[in-house]
Design a protein around this nucleic acid. Structure first.
Lengths: 348, 348
DNA sequence: GCTGCAAACGTTATCGGTAACGATTGCGTA
DNA sequence: TACGCAATCGTTACCGATAACGTTTGCAGC
């Protein structure tokens, strides 16, 4: 099967004109007489002519398309960020191509290279948890492909970055748990390679430090696939539970990981005894039982900032050399899960 | 900024050959001497040559890209369906371009037409709730664009369709509520234009009929935007609650609408008294309180079937004239929310 | 030596569109 | 009359790749 569309040539033939005359008439060039313009426009309208974007891309070396790589769209943070991206892109005349890495470095690479070859004008990248080697991105960047990192960023490539204030978010969450009287706070987090993991760990440590609690490495558990592999989270929780001094509270990172851990905790019937808070942008935290306290990231705004910066780079005449790192504040939303046991029991 | 890539011309110039020789050498043509082939391949490897897909698309009139339109990716059903689509497309060498209509007919049209113009080889479409007029899709279809409808389908266009068994799913859910002793079952659903709405309503009616309960039109509430506009759901629930004979159970359709309604019901403090079940593919139904009974659709498989059929059409030599409507069974997952009050109180 | 033929490569048209450049026409003016 | 110029349109090159067709070799065979 083949999908055929009217071309400028069809118009030219029908009206006995040259293709360039038709082209100029369609673009309203002053060189074309009003009468010819009218003829061309009317006929184009009649046969529902649409310029072929592929031919245009080839000629103009731009596609007005922007590529996005995230780990999973079935993740509230990313789907909200994508909505932010689209909200701006749409009005600026750009189309958004979404791809998923599923936390696989290989998949990420294939997607990025395919989009690059297909001529996207720029890339918005949130790295997969496996992506230690990003040389392929660096090459692309050196060849002049505009890119902006968001959420999971890297300092190996000099360009714009947009993230939440992961340090502050983690600090606030940890301090909140401390303020509720929890003293033995575990931290379940994603791949240690990720920027967000490091920043959140630093915030967690700093809050402990401020309140004179020594940092205990054994209370930090890494789930490299961020909750995509449930067993990683199960193992983490069971290991924590096997300690002689069990943690009395848990602080998790990552939308998916938070939900998964909370589910496992419920299965273990520990969710009424253990303080719990996590990074999550879920819209149903209120429906959980106990309702779920979260650190909420401004995902929509992160998406908006990212694409603003990207479009700015794309449309810049000169190569951009000054890059900014935009950091947006998170929001601590306290619900039942992180309140102290005594206080919680009032609610239940 | 501009992103430059090596072309066949660069190779030709460097090796003092013509572009066609290079082209043929790269494709391993018998017309090219082994020595030349070796030279070309080595140099291509060295400069990391990748054929320009845009030029190829222009020439070959195919892109190996498939366009998908859904209402929202932040919807468990759709994100799971997309994962199913990708799982097949990836292995068959197709790339997937995802777009969202946000339940807007206009947006859907723009997205589809852009993808068509950009030369996707085929389309996977789940209609927006506003899409009463699909003439633009019919035109595209008549011009030979392969398309498969999934989930929200139409019988105005003769092509493959893939859906869940919405009738059976609704029937089972309603009958289940009846079996729990509920007698006054409300039905909150999406836009009346949608195929899924009609099918589910029919299943609901049939179950009532089977059990001798008269159908009451006032117990059916439509939320045309499927939960995207929360007020629609609020109004529906408040209207139902204002009746002198309040419904004792609610059956909802749509991932988003189900979650939204359940949240409102909780706000109204009615969720412990009202039986509740809804179409949803959420993975956190267990975490809700009371845990949420759902009709689960085989979203991943629906995605897989859809793209299988689409690729089949795309790669068919002759125009396809025999179309199938694939209907996959749903799964009734009973949890606390739909159990009868007495039984439920045991659990709480 | 001439012809025939195959091997190995170059030329050119093509996809659809844009733009630099050329060409033709009519008209005003020296 | 001839020249310049504007108005209006056509020709052609180009973007990157492929493929039909053409061309240049060298060598075998008569």
């Amino acid at each position: 099967m083949k999908f055929e569309s009217a071309t400028i040539k069809d118009i030219a033939k029908a009206l006995n004109l040259s293709t360039s005359t038709v082209s100029r008439a369609l673009r309203g060039s002053y060189e074309i007489s009003d009468e010819t313009k009218k003829q061309v426009l009317e006929y184009a309208e009649k046969i529902n002519y649409r310029p072929n974007p592929i031919a245009l891309s080839l000629k103009e070396r731009r596609t007005r398309a922007i590529g996005v790589v995230v780990s999973e769209i079935a993740n509230n943070f990313f789907s909200q960020a994508i909505n932010g991206i689209e909200s701006i892109a749409y009005n600026r005349g750009y189309h958004v191509i979404i791809t998923q890495s599923h936390e696989s470095h290989e998949r990420e690479k294939v997607n990025v290279q395919h989009m690059a070859a297909r001529g996207v004008d720029g890339l918005l990248v949130s790295l997969s948890s496996e992506s230690a080697d990003i040389s392929y991105l660096r090459e692309l960047h050196e060849k002049g492909m505009p890119m902006v990192f968001f959420d999971r960023v890297t300092d190996e490539i000099e360009t714009h970055r947009v993230t939440a204030n992961n340090y502050n978010g983690a600090f606030a969450a940890t301090e909140h748990l401390l303020s509720q009287g929890y003293k033995n706070i575990a931290h379940i987090t994603s791949s240690p390679f990720l920027s967000i993991t490091k920043e959140r760990l630093a915030g967690y440590k700093a809050a402990l430090d401020k309140h004179g609690i020594p940092f205990n490495e054994n209370l930090v558990k890494y789930c490299p696939h961020g909750g995509m592999i449930v067993k990683e989270a199960e193992d983490a929780l069971h290991e924590l539970n096997a300690k002689k001094q069990k943690p009395d509270a848990i602080f998790t990172t990552g939308d998916r990981l938070t939900i998964v851990c909370y589910g496992i905790l419920k299965q273990m019937k520990k969710n009424d005894q253990t303080g719990f808070i996590g990074f999550s942008n879920t819209q149903v935290a209120d429906l959980f039982s106990p309702s779920l306290s979260v650190v909420r990231q401004p995902a929509f705004e992160i998406g908006q900032f990212s694409i603003e910066l990207l479009i700015q780079m794309i449309e810049s005449k000169r190569p951009v050399t000054e890059f900014q790192t935009k950091i947006l504040e998170t929001e601590l939303v306290v619900r039942e899960s992180s309140l102290h046991k005594q206080k919680k029991s009032v609610h239940l």
